[in-house]
């Protein structure tokens, strides 16, 4: 799986926001806000990857158990899916 569009991530108003670009003609950009773990998951999705790989990355970055990391990743991927932002 990987991200469907090109995105730009920036801090806006103290919040990390990813905005899809290249959706020509769309006045309202597709966007998603990222928390700390979201940022790591996001970076991982920049290229083709898997749930396991992302979970490993999250565990390496933060001091969390596999269970906690998995829940985080699955929730986040669900959000992306519902926004139509993921290619699987």
């Amino acid at each position: 799986m990987k991200l469907k569009y090109g995105f730009v991530v920036r801090e806006v108003g103290g919040r990390s926001v990813a905005v899809a670009i290249g959706a020509r003609g769309a006045d309202t950009p597709s966007m998603i806000t990222l928390n700390d773990s979201g940022k790591v998951i996001w970076q991982a999705l920049g290229r083709e990857t898997s749930v396991d790989e992302i979970v490993d990355r999250l565990m390496a970055e933060f001091d969390v158990s596999r269970e906690v990391a998995e829940i985080d990743v699955i929730k986040f991927l669900d959000t992306l899916r519902s926004g139509g932002l993921l290619i699987e």
Partner: peptide, 15 residues
Amino acid sequence: SKEEAALELLGQILI
């Protein structure tokens, strides 16, 4: 808050 404003206003600009 700045955070809420960011979410509201990102939908009101041409990106």
